[in-house]
Computed example of a mutant assay.
Amino acid sequence: MLSEIRSARLDDGGVTVPLLFDAGKRLLTEVFGLGDPQVAQDYLAFAWQQGGGQYGSDNHWVAETNGEVTGLISCWHSHLPENFDRVTLQSIVDFYGIDTALDVVLKSQLYMAVIEPPMFLEMGVGHIAVIDSARRSGVGAALLKYMEEKARSLKKNAVVLNCEVDNHGALRFYQKMGYAEHRVNDKFIQMIRAIPLNRSSF
């Protein structure tokens, strides 16, 4: 039974780092592993412990079931800390060294060119993953609903997420949750769900 969704902590890394990797194995292996999945996972473990940035614990939330972490999610929006990108870049330089870091950043930029970012009035979600034993138990749905409420509190009018075009299981799940195709290219489909304001917001 799902007990709560809470902010992630540094000591969740033993579960959350594998979930982070599962959320985008192909992309993460190519960009951060330079073709080696173990290197990608080692970087994610390092970045998680930095706290801030794209892969740090500070901008992640976990689902907890019977005291155990069972799911993970993150989000991007206009209210992120000013140093968010700087901390992300610093974690890359610190882990790889400056020469290899340049290769990683270049590979990352190639992907960013085809992954649609959220617009100002949208909130992007990502790094969505659930442990094998908790799948089809409502954990993923609860994480998405939590983020939709967060988007409403930030006065965003939609939640968007990017999914690889051949990840048919994930696409079916998002469609079931009320998400529709928004923008499409040959690698990713951006899904969108409108977030109506509460009546009390008027």
Rank of each mutant, 00 (worst) to 15 (best):
I115W: 09
L197F: 15
L197Y: 13
E4V: 13
S133Q: 13
M191E: 00
L106M: 09
G97K: 07
V159D: 11
L121V: 08
Q175E: 15
D11P: 01
R135K: 12
V15G: 01
S137C: 04
V160T: 14
L121T: 14
Q49E: 12
D42G: 03
I5W: 12
Q41Y: 02
L2N: 12
D94Q: 13
K156G: 10
S78W: 03
G24I: 02
Y55P: 00
G124I: 06
A194E: 13
P117M: 13
K145I: 05
Q109P: 01
G97F: 08
N83K: 11
W48R: 04
P37S: 07
V114Y: 13
P37I: 05
Y179C: 04
S3M: 09
H60D: 00
D99S: 10
R26T: 14
F46Y: 13
A113S: 15
D36K: 11
L19N: 01
H77M: 04
L20F: 02
L121A: 08
S137T: 12
F188T: 06
M147G: 00
W76R: 13
S91W: 02
D99A: 15
N167Y: 08
F32G: 04
H60T: 03
K107C: 06
V93T: 08
A151S: 12
K187W: 07
M112Y: 14
W61G: 00
M191A: 09
N157T: 09
R172W: 02
H127N: 15
R193Q: 13
D12F: 10
Y174V: 09
N167P: 08
F173Y: 08
F84Y: 14
S137H: 07
R183E: 05
R6W: 11
S108H: 12
S57T: 03
V184R: 15
P18T: 09
Q54W: 00
W61T: 06
E64K: 03
S74G: 14
G53E: 02
V31H: 03
S3K: 12
Q90T: 10
I98G: 00
G33F: 03
N167D: 13
D166C: 08
E4P: 02
E149A: 08
A158I: 03
R86P: 00
V125A: 07
K155V: 08
M177G: 06
C163K: 02
Q190E: 07
E164H: 15
I5P: 06
H77L: 01
M147N: 09
K145P: 00
K156Y: 11
G13T: 01
V93P: 00
T16F: 03
E64C: 11
A129S: 15
D12N: 08
W76L: 14
